[in-house]
Structure formats: structure tokens, C-alpha cells
């Protein structure tokens, strides 16, 4: 296994391109779900110290909603879809309004239903992301049932440290942000997709992209 820090810029760019293709597909899926245009950032491949993960992504104490999936098969990885808690709430309101035709404020929606809606959105977004990557790489994959959590950003990102911490002090993440467009003034729904390739999968990825 090569040292993460020794990746050259061509390799990091290749990994970023994988993220780009995944993000495009995920944005399309989210747009279809919410009936709004989605603005997507160009993904970044980032080498982040595992000791500073939470600070890297924002306020460590911020409450976020997160959906996590594990993908096995040719390209093993984990994926997280993270939203500020308010954004996640607004998104659930929008989805339920589309489904039932009436607006129900998030405070009146039972938590089980909120989680179920969030899980479903996360699942669709992350599966679309993964499908595009696996088509590009020509690999087969299976995706786990998603897990959902609402908690401090710092606690949520402990999972990243537990993946990368055993082999070193750096995590390689592909990170991108999606924003829902055309909402009423003062409202915002954004979400971050973080791809965490298993350290062992990176070599395969670089080989398939012919930059190993």
C-alpha cells in the first residue's frame, strides 16, 4: 500500500475525476427527488490530518444529519452524506409536501419518519454516486443498508478516523457540496458527499485509471 502523502498531483486529479462523475449522477438524482435544480461544486480530493477532520469540515460542535453507507465489491469504500440539521429538516419538509400535498412543519413530523425520509434521500444520492464510479471502473458493487445519525460533526467524523487511523495519520477524502436552487429567500438546503475509499482500494482505482 502506497503512502497516501506520496500521491502525485496527476493521481489526485484522477481520483477527483472519479468524484466528479459520481457527483454529477448524485446531483441528477437529488434534483429528480426534490424537483429543483441542483448546483454542484467541483469535487476536491483532500489529504486531511485525521486529528483535524472536524475542524476541516466546519464547526466540530455543529449538529448535522448524516447518512452512511458501505460499498463492497471491486471498489470498496464508505460514503457519507452530511447536512446541517436545519437543512436536513427543510429537505424532509419539502419531500413530504411533494408526497402528501400538504405542508407539515418538521417539528410535527415523527422522528422515525424524518429519519426514514433522510435515509431514503441519502441512499438514492449515494447509490447514484457509486453507480457512476463503478461503471467508470468496470467493477461490480453491493451497497449496504444505510445508517443515519444526528449528532455533533466531530462525533460523526470519528468514523473517518477509525478507517484511516489504523494505517497512518492522513485520510484521503473526495469531498463535494450540493446545493438546492430555487428555494424561497432565506432558505437553504445543502449537503456534502464525502467519499472514503478503503486504503486498499486506492491502488485499484489508480490502476484502472492508468495513473498507477
Amino acid at each position: 500500500m502506497s503512502e497516501l502523502a506520496s500521491f502525485n498531483s496527476l493521481q489526485l486529479d484522477a481520483i477527483k475525476e472519479v468524484g466528479n462523475i459520481g457527483t454529477g449522477n448524485a446531483a441528477t438524482a437529488l434534483s429528480g427527488l426534490l424537483g429543483h435544480m441542483i448546483q454542484m461544486d467541483v469535487p476536491e480530493t483532500e489529504l486531511v490530518s485525521i486529528y483535524e477532520l472536524a475542524e476541516h469540515y466546519g464547526d466540530p460542535m455543529q449538529i448535522v444529519g448524516a447518512v452512511f453507507v458501505r460499498s463492497t465489491g471491486g471498489f470498496q469504500c464508505s460514503l457519507i452524506f452530511i447536512q446541517p440539521e436545519d437543512d436536513a429538516g427543510l429537505m424532509v419538509e419539502m419531500l413530504l409536501k411533494q408526497q402528501f400535498g400538504t405542508f407539515i412543519p418538521i417539528s410535527e413530523i415523527p422522528p422515525e419518519m424524518t429519519d426514514s425520509a433522510l435515509t431514503e434521500v441519502g441512499n438514492i444520492v449515494l447509490s447514484s454516486f457509486l453507480n457512476a464510479i463503478n461503471i467508470l471502473l468496470g467493477t461490480q458493487h453491493q451497497i449496504s443498508v444505510p445508517g443515519v445519525a444526528h449528532d455533533m460533526l466531530s462525533s460523526i467524523l470519528d468514523v473517518v478516523a477509525s478507517i484511516y487511523g489504523q494505517m497512518g495519520e492522513t485520510a484521503l477524502l473526495v469531498n463535494t457540496e450540493l446545493k438546492v436552487e430555487g428555494l424561497e429567500a432565506g432558505r437553504k438546503i445543502s449537503g456534502q458527499i464525502i467519499l472514503l475509499p478503503d486504503p486498499e482500494s486506492l491502488e485499484l482505482l489508480l490502476k484502472k485509471l492508468k495513473v498507477d
Binding site: 448524516a66 452512511f68 453507507v69 458501505r70 463492497t72 464508505s78 449496504s144 443498508v145 444505510p146 445508517g147 443515519v148 445519525a149 449528532d151 462525533s155 460523526i156 470519528d158 468514523v159 477509525s162 478507517i163
Partner: peptide
């Protein structure tokens, strides 16, 4: 020592760290 995510049916060592 919490387990932040539980994925029914998925086995991954790091989830139970």
C-alpha cells in the same frame, strides 16, 4: 466509545471500533 452508525447486515470492523 459510541457506535455512530449501525448498518444492518454489513460487516465492517471499523463500525464497532
Amino acid at each position: 466509545g459510541a457506535q455512530m452508525f449501525a448498518l444492518p447486515g454489513a460487516s465492517a470492523d471499523f463500525l464497532t471500533v
